[in-house]
Structure formats: C-alpha cells, structure tokens
Design a protein around this nucleic acid. Structure first.
Lengths: 156, 156
DNA sequence: GCACGAAGTTCCCTTAAGGAACCCCAAGCG
DNA sequence: CGCTTGGGGTTCCTTAAGGGAACTTCGTGC
C-alpha cells in the first residue's frame, strides 16, 4: 500500500494525522496512558504485530509524542507520554465522547471518566477558549490563517 | 494489508476508529464540511484515488456519518453530513487545535476559527460537561462502565 | 555456562492504496 | 436520431503496508 503522506498539506488535521493517523497509533497512546507502557504489554494487550508495534513506537517517539526510556540496567525500555503526547489525549477523549454517544448501544459506555475537580462521572464538552460558550461545527466560520498555503484547495 | 477490525473491541476509541480511522476519512469529512460535497470535487481537492474515495464514501454512508443524496434529475449525488457526522467534527476541531499548537511552526495556523457567539478568533477547549472546569488527560480517573467487556485488556 | 525474558528483527504471505483506463447514463445539441 | 459531454463511479495492475510466526540479542540469575 503506497500511502500518501499527509504531513506536507497546509492543514492541521492532515498534519495531526501524520502523527497518529496510522492504524493502531491512537490505541497505543490510549494503552500508554492507561499504564501499558512496555513493548510486551502493548503487544499482548492490543494483539498487534510486533513488527508494526515497533514501527509505530519509533514513529511516535520521533514525533515527540512518546519518550523511550530505560527502566532497568538491562536493556529494558518503557514508553511514556511527553507533554505533547499528553495533550494529544484530548483528541482521544473527544473520540470517546462521540463513540459513547453513537456507538455504545444498549450496553452503555465501556469506560467512565470521573472528573477530579467535581468528582462526578462526566464527559468532555467543547467550549470556546475565548468566551467559554459551546463551540461545535455549526458555531464557527473558517478564515484563512497566516500559515495558509497560497494556492491549495480546502483548508483545515 | 489485512487490517485488524477494531469495531469489536469494548473501547469507544476503537469503535470510532472503525468509522473514521482509515486513511483519508477525516480529510473527506473536513472537505464535506467546508463545502466540497461532490465526488469530483473531493477527488480533485484531495488527490485521492477514485477507487479509495468510492470505498470511503460508501463506508461513511453505511456508518450514518454522511448521507448520499441526488441534486439533479440526472444521476448526480452529493454527500452531506448527518447529525452524527456533524458531531464527529468535534474530533477534527480538537485535532486542529493540537496541530495548530504543536505542528504549525513559524508560519502559524493555516486556518482560523471565528466563534459566532463572541465573534473572536478562537479555538476549542475541553471542559467537563458537568461542572464546566477544564478536563484533560490529567484531570480524570477511569472507571469500568456498564458496557465494559468481561475479560479484556485495556479499556477505552 | 545455561536458561530466561524483554525487546526487538527478519521473512513470507496477504491485502489495501495508487493510478490510469474504462464504463454508464442522462442531458443537450444539431 | 446519433453524437458529445460530464458526473460518478468500476476495473485492473502494481506496489507497499499489515499479520504472523520464527529468530536474534543482550544482560541477569541460577
């Protein structure tokens, strides 16, 4: 599969996909966040091919999303989220919110989030960073930004 | 590439990936949102293979994220976001926020969002739907929910 | 010095993406 | 009526990526 490289597009969605758009990558980040930080743990939990897991981990480390660090005098390593990677978890939380609403069905959400600040079972909601009001697809206009390419198609 | 099917996992991230996890799907949704709603427009703007575009559109329609509807007496169709698809745009907005912050570089964001409610150029922020305080990776505990599988690995 | 276990590598097979050519169908036109 | 046009796909071939299992490497511990 000769896959197109999205990273060159003047589009932050495409660029983000270049980091976590490959199959398994979001699930790897989820597992690392949950506490499966070692190669064997990830491989066993996800059932991913060892070859692909190696590739994904290397890529995520190169992108600065994960950090590979030794945890033993023997050559043993664990993968931990960097600040950049931790912030990427926002994307996953929103995916969970959507999946819980539209795909969970009768059984209900497989996982619940308890919010530290209020102690309640809750979910994320998108708000405007400026005024704090809800901010969804219908609440915005798109404008060309400073990094817009000169003559490309759709923006992102 | 015999790709593993994520949809069966008791994990809302995996389930959401089953809908938009394949290459191009998020970019197709972005384009549809921006106004590229026809096959030829999407193909030309994205530079995607017609075969793959056909597959992706069919899948997104099957998943209830897009609706295919005629716009002419001739067999001409356009793809529009359903409510389910519109809400999925939340995920893309958060991806844009992260990409703008971590990947845009010197040039700055390629696209700006103006929020209708306040009229300002802004970005999304994740808040607790219950108390309204910020809600990010470090602000939550995970608990098993009603839809949790009995004996699987990491939750989602 | 031998087994062990984590962390990869290597190899082969299958399948998905790219890309270009081709097809179908309803108008529109002469 | 027959020809052309253009949107919306389909077909076919090539290439590369994922799956899976076997193999390697390197420090410990016994």
């Amino acid at each position: 599969m000769q896959r197109t490289n999205f990273g060159e597009l003047a589009c932050s969605i495409a660029r983000t996909l270049d980091v976590i758009g490959e199959p398994w990558s979001p699930l790897i980040l989820r597992d690392v966040f949950v506490g499966f930080t070692r190669f064997e743990q990830l491989q066993a939990d996800l059932g991913i091919s060892r070859k692909v897991l190696t590739e994904r981990l290397n890529h995520l480390v190169e992108c600065g999303v994960l950090e590979r660090r030794p945890y033993d005098r023997r050559p043993r390593f664990e993968y931990v989220l960097t600040e950049k990677g931790t912030e990427l978890f926002d994307v996953l939380m929103v995916m969970v919110g959507w999946g819980d609403k539209w795909l969970a069905g009768e059984a209900g959400p497989p996982v619940l989030y308890r919010h530290h600040a209020c102690g309640e079972i809750s979910r994320v909601d998108l708000r405007c960073a400026h005024c704090g009001e809800p901010m969804h697809a219908g609440d915005i206009d798109l404008l060309a930004g400073p990094g817009a390419a000169v003559a490309t198609g759709a923006p992102g």
